[in-house]
Amino acid sequence: MRRWLPYPAMSGLLLVIWLLLNQTLAPGQFVVGAILGVVLARIFRLLDAPTLRLRNPHRLLLLAARVSLDVVRSNYAVAKLIVRGQSRAVQSGFVSVPLRLTNPYALVVLACIITSTPGTIWVSYDAGRNVLLIHVLDLVDETVWIRTIRDRYEHLLLEIFE
């Protein structure tokens, strides 16, 4: 089983992508997609990627809901800022956030979350000191942002990935 399907989730995902691209559920395409998934996952194994283990997969739903809400909210906030023309006066700056998260997959998810919410951008991550550097458009108080990232996302990601 492990020999043929080293990354079952990835094989499944590739199958879904193949079926979506072809807009079909025909058995023939299903077989092609499944073969593609198995073969590409085996090639992927040559890269020696760390294995992904989800501890609480059901918490992903909560994370997704929270992120969607935040994306909509910060879209509204940044759009308001630009339309009202206060954008020139607004104070922006860099914030260093000390993290407890070390799992590479969790960090990737965190990068997507932080950049997808307008108003914050992931700049760099220092693996040695475990410190994340982000840039914030509307920076009023650094501690608020550090607390937001730690309580809203990092806590959940720790539960899910570590």
Binding site: V78, A79, I82, G85, S87, G119, I121, H135
Partner: peptide, 18 residues
């Protein structure tokens, strides 16, 4: 419209996300 590069970099994420 925004006046510095680091501010400008935030604007396009409106279009690329929601």
């Amino acid at each position: 419209r925004l006046n510095s590069f680091y501010k400008r970099v935030h604007a396009p994420t409106l279009g690329t996300t929601f």
